[in-house]
């Protein structure tokens, strides 16, 4: 490797990262992950829940949550090929270099659940931004009481990180419950919405910190179920999504009421969003 190019300190200028490994997570790669390493050798330190702006040469930039372990070497991102940039990125192979700006945004306050139950509620691809919180809880497992991962997705084929989920459930002290909207032959697990897993309980609502990530509709129902079960709004965190261009608070795109998702979020304590959460087209 040639000497790394020195990188400007300007937060609008990306750093170079090499794709060390690119692999399909779901199907033929509609959802895929990258393991990245910095060309300049300086690791990118982040907190669970934060995101980076990923840049593909000449194509553009997209905000993508970090899906890897904050306390392990390497940077892992999980992407869904759904827009122009993420579809182009799907074609990139190991060895290619992309630009990375970040990390940006607020983090899952995992430490807040120390001495209490931790309930992680994920919907669909929303498991990816929550995975760093899972890693964090598992690394410091003795600091928490029960730890739940409640995960709902569309169908068995779409289950993200399937082997890892099985490993967590079988080997580690993590209550993993997975449910799908549509079962199928060979599926012997739960069928139904993720909110039902919340209703089944097993955690102490007054001493629980909950974190939800997924489509906005799913989070709305998840929060309602958590509240119905007795978890206060001040103990629930959600991760929001809006269009984003600069990630540092001045392009204006990610506004959500008074908030800038890029710097005030993406992780918000639910009570701070409650007044606007149900306002349409905000």
């Amino acid at each position: 490797m040639s000497a790394p190019a020195s990188q400007p300190l300007d937060p609008m200028i990306p750093r170079q990262f090499r794709i060390e490994e690119a692999f399909a997570e779901v199907g033929s790669g509609e959802v895929y992950s990258w393991r990245l390493s910095p060309l300049d050798g300086e690791p990118l330190r982040f907190a669970p829940g934060q995101f980076n702006m990923l840049y593909q040469f000449g194509i553009g930039e997209v905000p993508i949550s970090i899906s890897g372990d904050a306390e392990a070497a390497g940077l892992v991102h999980t992407l869904r090929a759904v827009g122009g940039v993420t579809k182009a990125m799907q074609k990139l192979e190991a060895g290619e270099v992309i630009g990375v700006r970040g990390p940006f945004g607020t983090a899952w306050p995992v430490a807040e659940a120390e001495g209490q139950d931790l309930v992680l509620v994920a919907g669909g691809i929303g498991l990816a931004p929550l995975r760093p919180a899972v890693y964090c809880a598992l690394r410091h497992r003795d600091r928490f009481n029960r730890v739940f991962l409640l995960y709902g997705t569309r169908q068995p084929e779409d289950i993200l990180f399937r082997e890892e989920l099985e490993h967590w459930r079988a080997q580690l002290d993590l209550d993993v419950y997975v449910t799908v909207d549509r079962g199928g032959p060979g599926w012997h697990g739960n069928v139904g919405v993720v909110t039902k897993l919340i209703a089944r309980g097993g955690f102490d609502p007054a001493n629980t910190v909950a974190m939800a990530c997924g489509p906005e509709v799913m989070m709305r129902f998840a929060v309602m179920a958590l509240q119905k079960h007795g978890v206060a709004a001040e103990r629930i965190y959600v991760s929001m999504e809006r269009n984003m261009k600069c990630a540092i608070g001045y392009c204006g795109h990610c506004q959500y009421g008074p908030h800038f998702i890029c710097k005030d979020g993406p992780v918000f304590r639910f009570d701070t969003l409650q007044p606007i959460f149900d306002v349409r087209e905000l």
């Binding site: 040639s2 190019a5 990306p14 060309l39 290619e96 630009g99």
Partner: peptide
């Protein structure tokens, strides 16, 4: 401006 040089990107 980004340029591709020897498999790397220069910004």
């Amino acid at each position: 401006r980004a340029t591709r040089v020897d498999g790397q990107l220069r910004f």
